[in-house]
Every structure is written in structure tokens, then in C-alpha cells.
Amino acid sequence: MTVAETILVFAGVPLAIIVLLALLIFLPGGRKRVRYKSGQPWDHAPIWYEPHPDGAAAGHGSHAALPAGSSAPVTAGPLGGARGTW
């Protein structure tokens, strides 16, 4: 094995592999959604998730629509709950 071949095999091949992996990792467009880490600012618009209404399968669920015309605000009574920080 000549000197050139030795360098090519023992330096060139590892280098090629490293460059390939680096390209795969750092090439733009791979991952656009940043994963939340504690302490990061939250720049997204507020969003509200609701459960699916009881569908046809559930029939008359407990969340049947209120009859039209009941415009009086429903008071929730004394509220309970809890609070936490991290």
C-alpha cells in the first residue's frame, strides 16, 4: 500500500463518514418544530383544545345542547382547582 492509499483509507474514509453525518444533521429543513425545553419563551398563539362532543354513538349524553333561549349566564359556583409552577 502506497502512502497515498494509506492516507486515503485511514483519513479520507473516516472524514467522508463524518462529513456525511454532519450534513444529515445540520442540513436545514430537517426539523422545523423546536422541542419545548423548560425555561424557553413560548411564542405560539394561545390555543384551546376541547374534547369531542358525544357523537352519534353516545346518543343522549350528559352534554346535550341546551335548549335555545336560555340566555341567562350559568354560574359555575365556587371554583376549585390548583396551581403549580415548574
Binding site: A76, G77, G80, A82
Partner: peptide, 17 residues
């Protein structure tokens, strides 16, 4: 949940509480 402020609040109505 407010991830920016690191606060979570749970509010329950009277019957739920």
C-alpha cells in the same frame, strides 16, 4: 398551561370540584 411563564392552573366548576 402557560409554558412561557412556567405556570399551570387547574380550574374546576362547583360540581366538578
Amino acid at each position: 398551561v402557560s409554558p412561557g411563564q412556567r405556570v399551570v392552573e387547574v380550574v374546576t366548576g362547583a360540581a366538578a370540584a
